[in-house]
Amino acid sequence: MSNRKPIRKAVFPVAGLGTRFLPATKAIPKELLPIVDKPLIQYAVDEAREAGIEQMIFVTGRGKTAIVEHFDIAYELESTMAERGKDLGVLESSRFTPGDIITVRQQVPLGLGHAIWCARAIVGDEPFAILLPDEMMVGQPGCMAQMIEAYNEVGGNLISVLEVPQDEVSSYGVIDPGEVSGALTEVRGLVEKPPADKAPSNKIISGRYILQPEVMRTLENQGKGAGGEIQLTDAMARMIGDQPFHAVTFNGQRYDCGSKTGFVEATLALALEREDLGAEVRAIAERLLAR
């Protein structure tokens, strides 16, 4: 019987300004931009819920209160829909038990590591998950469910990775791999954006983490790294050797929704897979491509 603490909490860093999507993100958080008919953040939250995570911690910034509103109960909307006999099931995934959504403010944009550190009091002394909503991971089961299955086997710290062509590695954080067992790879080191010919592997870090609470202590005392920001990668690298550290190769599809092309690709891919939209969207795409 394992004495590992279960993963009950997930941190979502959502304080970014979304400048790549201006002017769309001037008044709406980029995390609420829809992929087909669900906001981007909803896909990450659904993935966490599927993995058995109970408490969602949003690290927000100014102008991000609409994210919390999205996961609240909208009484006027629901009563109007009920009166008109409309199905309320469509809102089910955006509803939470009181207390299961918690927000903390990152007052100054000091990097991903700092955003995670802002959640230290809520995470407490438990291992926790991190999901970066910009990285949209589509799989059966979802990426976090795949990672929790691996965590139950090996414990310690885990990150999700994907294999990319060698000439693309310089855009990402890359792992220095050790022993490989199925989807699990031992992590011996982490290298941020290495030149393609110097990269230790083609396995890139892809926006999902399960970390032990000690990472908060590491972040507490950590100076600024690349870009003058407090980097999560630096803190994780310092924990290698002290605790088990593995990468899980995600079996599924990743869409980089932090870029416009990735956002369009995700929208098109998910629409094509929908029973209610797929055939029509395919016909539209073919018509546009034939022009």
Rank of each mutant, 00 (worst) to 15 (best):
Q243H: 11
G63A: 04
E286G: 13
K198L: 14
E78Y: 09
S170C: 02
D125A: 14
R274N: 05
G155I: 05
R291H: 12
T249R: 14
R217P: 00
Q243T: 11
R95F: 09
L110F: 09
L211E: 11
G155F: 10
L277C: 02
K260W: 12
E31N: 02
E50D: 09
Q212P: 04
R120Q: 10
L32P: 06
A271C: 11
G173S: 13
L40K: 04
A247H: 03
G278L: 04
E168C: 06
Q42I: 04
R84S: 05
V154A: 05
T60W: 00
V248Q: 08
E286H: 05
L162I: 11
L33T: 01
G225H: 04
I204L: 02
I122S: 03
A269H: 08
V123R: 01
M137W: 07
I57S: 01
E229T: 06
M1P: 12
G262C: 08
T185F: 03
A285L: 13
S160N: 12
K86T: 03
I148A: 05
A82D: 08
E54Q: 12
I67G: 01
I101T: 12
M236Q: 12
G63C: 07
R84I: 01
F71Y: 14
V45Q: 03
T185S: 15
I67S: 08
L17Y: 03
T103W: 10
T80I: 09
V174S: 08
I116P: 09
G18M: 02
I230Y: 06
A199P: 03
I7E: 10
P6S: 08
V264A: 15
Q212T: 15
R120E: 06
A235P: 06
Y255P: 01
V191S: 05
A247D: 04
M56W: 01
M239W: 02
L32T: 02
G142R: 10
G142C: 14
E265Q: 13
D176K: 14
V11K: 00
A10R: 02
E153Q: 14
E76L: 06
D87G: 01
I159V: 15
S79L: 06
L32F: 11
F58N: 03
G227N: 11
M144R: 07
G156Y: 03
E50S: 09
V161C: 02
L91Y: 15
R84N: 15
Q222P: 00
R4N: 08
L270C: 02
G228P: 07
I41F: 06
G18I: 09
V174A: 00
G262Q: 02
H246F: 15
I28A: 05
A66W: 09
L131T: 02
G252P: 10
K260S: 06
A145E: 10
K193D: 03
M236P: 06
D125S: 14
E163K: 15
Q140L: 08
F263A: 03
E214R: 10
E135N: 10
G142Y: 02
L268M: 11
S160R: 01
